[in-house]
């Protein structure tokens, strides 16, 4: 081991937290007792932003900039399938912190902090948002708990030495930041296009190890701070009318809707 920075470049470990969610193609249906969204017998999949995060980690490994990619999920037993998908895409190892509770971002961030302390990665790459709760919070909270710098909504990630340079999608356009590693990066949609795992890689992934642990192995599951009172359907918009011509449209917008 020459210098600390050479070690990091050569032996860099990346942690990728992945969440199992309702497949993005499936429309969420609210349960009639208003207790939540119906997840019985519906297709589940890896959160699309987490797929992008896995892909980015694998590309860094393929460029020789990372050595070991650990995919970690907090969730029920079937979240192993989500981890298995990450392994088939190219992650090296998996860790499931198994719980049937549906932990809040704060609780997930605390567990991930304990995982980071155990695994000592130089970089955590994760999704910007889980498309079930749409919280957009865990990455920022993990960075805060670790006192690490963060770059959210990444559309480009470049590593050199101990520094990661990230281009971020912000409301007005793009912003580029340089962070000292270790750091947390959260992936936006245009960071990359995730690969489909090939059959040989799916077979290989079956031999990779997934450790199954409990929240108690990582400091325990924090008690919830939020109670969901009810989950309801949003007000429905109904289809309006079809107009025949552009001229019709304009006269309706002017006289009927009064918006032009």
């Amino acid at each position: 081991m020459a210098t600390a920075s050479a070690w990091k470049v050569n032996h860099m470990k990346i942690l990728v937290p992945v969440k199992r969610v309702l497949d993005y193609n499936v429309k969420a249906r609210v349960k009639s007792d208003q207790s939540g969204v119906d997840l019985a017998n519906v297709k589940m999949a890896m959160n699309p932003f987490c797929e992008i995060a896995v892909e980015e980690a694998v590309r860094l490994k393929e460029k020789g900039l990372a050595e070991d990619i650990v995919a970690v999920s907090v969730g029920p037993a079937p979240a192993q399938e989500t981890i298995r998908t990450a392994l088939a895409m190219g992650a090296d190892r998996g860790l499931l912190i198994q719980t049937d509770a549906d932990p809040e971002p704060l609780a997930v961030a605390k567990l991930l902090k304990a995982v980071v302390e155990a695994e000592q990665p130089s970089l955590v790459i994760m999704g910007k948002q889980a498309i079930d709760g749409d919280n957009n919070a865990v990455g920022q909270m993990l960075a805060a708990l670790l006192d690490w710098p963060q770059a959210t909504f990444a559309s480009k990630v470049e590593l050199s030495g101990d520094v990661v340079r990230v281009t971020r999608e912000v409301d007005g356009g793009l912003q580029t930041l340089e962070l000292d590693m270790p750091a947390v990066v959260t992936a936006d949609l245009r960071l990359n296009e995730p690969r489909y795992a090939s059959l040989p890689n799916i077979m290989k992934a079956k031999k990779k190890v997934i450790d199954v642990k409990s929240p108690d192995d990582f400091g325990g599951l924090a008690a919830p701070h939020l109670t969901v009172k009810r989950v309801t359907e949003p007000p429905k918009r109904t289809a309006g009318m079809k107009v025949e011509t552009a001229a019709d449209l304009v006269s309706k917008l002017k006289t009927e809707a009064g918006v032009i």
């Binding site: 609210v30 969204v37 498309i131 701070h225 009172k229 989950v231 359907e233």
Partner: peptide, 15 residues
Amino acid sequence: PIYAGNALETVASVD
């Protein structure tokens, strides 16, 4: 809103 606005969640915080 949750699930891309396909559901609305009413949450109470103890913080």
